[in-house]
């Protein structure tokens, strides 16, 4: 990989040829606990792949396997075609990562923590440290000891360590943790810019709104299994449409619509009808309600958001109604 004067990364042949991340039938057991169950994931250059799951779903275990910190019980993980392992030093030179909560040496300053990371990455001089300090907005805190940092700034320091060597692959576990709203937007924009310039980004998160805004592809992991993969550009392919109806008499309208063969569910101060018939013909719903004396005050056809989709998917797998 090289970086041009415009900051755009130019890909070498090995980066452009195959998937950056290839996870094949990977399983991880801790005694009787099945943490990851036969997961297959393939991530191409420049993608922002987000792993979405509840706490304990297996996100961090999978990320640790990607980084060679945890050995799969079965299956194989490879980066740029090379099997992952502790001895893959050339591979690790091209990976930036942040696993779970950011860690730093508490008695070292922000700059010293970064300098230490830079030396262990064999980066020459202080330029990479200065650059990443500015990029992550840490200039004001550069001489402050890490133990005195707020959670948000500790997170920035963790991200700075991951970005220090301008790696072509970023593996980030909950990168928005602890950041204020402006910080979340800032990091999102930064990751998008990096991806546009050719960096592959693999993130895990349980913050659905953030994932929806950032990722180009989403994998939903539940009880260790990758249960769905979504392309965020293909919203119509997975986001279920529904008709949202507001009326002054929700209880009465619910009875009327049920009698008419719809399946309304209360959703705050409105009703949601997932029926294809309702989505295709909202006027028919309006006519039914007007005739029954419960005229609608508002009708909207809306596609479900990622949160609804996720909860429906996970709930369905758990045997709930989602």
């Amino acid at each position: 990989m090289t970086t041009s004067t415009t900051g755009k990364r130019q890909l070498d042949a090995t980066e452009a040829a195959g998937p950056v991340i290839q996870v094949s039938a990977v399983t991880k057991r801790y005694g009787p606990v099945l943490a990851v169950d036969r997961v297959d994931v393939s991530v191409a250059t420049g993608e922002i792949y987000s792993l979405l799951g509840l706490n304990g779903a297996g996100k961090t275990t999978l990320i640790r396997m990607l980084l060679g910190m945890v050995r799969p019980t079965d299956g194989q993980v490879s980066l740029w075609g090379a099997p992952v392992g502790p001895r893959q030093r050339a591979v690790w030179a091209r990976v930036g990562y942040l696993v779970e909560t950011p860690a730093a040496y508490p008695e070292l300053s922000v700059r010293e923590n970064l300098r230490l990371a830079a030396r262990l990455r064999h980066l020459p001089g202080s330029a990479p440290v200065d650059e990443v300090i500015d990029r992550l907005g840490l200039r004001e805190y550069a001489h402050r000891r890490a133990r005195t940092l707020s959670l948000g700034n500790a997170q920035r320091l963790g991200l700075a360590k991951a970005l220090l060597h301008q790696p072509p692959l970023l593996i980030l576990d909950e990168p928005a943790n602890g950041l204020d709203p402006a910080g979340v937007v800032e990091i999102r924009d930064l990751l998008r810019d990096l991806a546009e310039a050719g960096t592959t980004v693999f993130v895990s998160s349980h913050v659905l709104a953030e994932v929806a805004r950032l990722a180009t592809r989403i994998g939903i992991i539940h009880h260790g299994r990758l249960v769905r993969e979504l392309d965020t550009n293909d919203l119509a392919g997975w986001a279920r449409p529904s008709l949202r109806v507001s009326t002054r008499d929700l209880a009465g309208a619910t009875d009327v619509l049920r009698r008419a063969g719809f399946h309304p569910t209360a959703d705050g101060d409105a009703l949601t009808l997932p029926d294809e018939r309702a989505v295709a013909a909202p006027d028919e719903v309006a006519t039914v309600l007007v005739a029954a004396g419960c005229p609608p005050t508002h009708l909207t056809v809306a596609r479900e958001d990622l949160e609804t989709y996720f909860l429906r998917t996970v709930g369905g797998l758990d045997g709930g109604h989602g």
């Binding site: 001895r87 990562y97 990455r121």
Partner: peptide
């Protein structure tokens, strides 16, 4: 104790 071990595991500097 400081949870910094994880930052020493995937580096060009070997374990």
């Amino acid at each position: 104790s400081d949870h910094t071990a994880k930052d020493l595991l995937a580096l060009p500097t070997s374990r």
